[in-house]
């Protein structure tokens, strides 16, 4: 699955990041960079610190050491909603949708940061507030079309099967029109067909909107096909960084994670 795009300058750089929980080092001295328009995969055994890395990028965890530079601005700490307003969106390993709300409302929440109507206008729901709702509804419907979930838009997400929930969660992240999209195991627990659909969505997002994507995935077939570059973590340290082909032949990575193919 070759696709050629011009990869730009680094949009995100992490420098010497360390993170620990009560003496346990989740990440130690991890440095990496993500270039614009790139699909970067992070792989590694369970507990290697992959999710922690994403959590540092969008501000859920604050690193004990090191800096994160996103779109030229360097910072040691920030809150998740600040990350969101700078254009970082994500999905979660264990789906984190708003279970009591419909698919439509869930995806609409992704537009929150782009909505401006004041409190008063919302109370009376005329003028600005109403127009704004409708304008953003158009955008959300585009995403619903893109993900082919038209028929379930009024269904509460709690009732949906797992695969669809994952898709809705991707929709919510896309609604924010992020520059950087973090996907935490987007294909975990899916069957082959669902994986193919999801892979197609990821590639299309990357192609059509030019969104930079960082994803964590265990399915090596998917990782090798989708990604431009792969980073390997083990025990909180980076042990590999390169194109899929380079990673496949990296001895450290084979020892720690990939194993030997028979």
């Amino acid at each position: 699955m070759e696709h050629s795009r011009s990869l730009g300058e680094p949009i995100l750089s992490m420098d010497e990041i360390s993170l620990s929980f009560g003496g346990v080092n989740a990440l130690s001295n991890v440095s990496l960079h993500v270039r614009e328009h790139e699909i970067l995969a992070i792989i590694g055994p369970n507990g290697a610190g992959k999710s922690s890395l994403l959590n540092v990028i969008n501000g859920v965890y604050h690193p004990s050491k090191g800096t994160v530079t996103f779109k030229g601005a360097t910072r040691a700490q920030m809150r998740p909603h600040e990350a969101a307003s700078q254009g970082i969106a994500r999905t979660f390993q264990n789906i984190a949708l708003f279970k009591g709300m419909t698919v439509l409302d869930n995806i609409m929440t992704g537009r929150t940061l782009k909505m401006r109507a004041g409190f008063f206008w919302q109370c009376i729901y005329v003028g600005k507030a109403r127009n704004e709702e409708i304008e953003h509804r158009h955008k959300v419907e585009e995403i619903i079309d893109f993900l082919q979930i038209q028929s379930i838009r009024k269904t509460p997400v709690g009732r949906l099967p797992y695969g669809l929930q994952k898709r809705v969660e991707l929709g919510r992240a896309l609604a924010a029109e992020p520059d950087l999209l973090l996907l935490d195991e987007p294909m975990a627990g899916m069957n082959i067909e669902e994986k193919e659909d999801m892979s197609r969505f990821v590639l299309d997002v990357n192609d059509e909107f030019g969104t930079t994507i960082v994803l964590i995935e265990h399915d090596m077939g998917v990782v090798m096909d989708l990604s431009d570059r792969v980073i390997v973590l083990d025990y909180g340290r980076k042990i590999g960084d390169g194109t899929p082909d380079e990673i496949r032949s990296n001895q450290d990575v084979i020892d720690a994670y990939l194993g030997v193919t028979h």
Binding site: V60, P80, H81, L97, F98, D105, T109, L113
Partner: peptide
């Protein structure tokens, strides 16, 4: 409602 259902996720999408 987003805050009610899952506050961490709500904050991550900018609420």
């Amino acid at each position: 409602m987003a805050t009610r259902d899952m506050d961490v996720a709500a904050e991550i999408i900018g609420i």
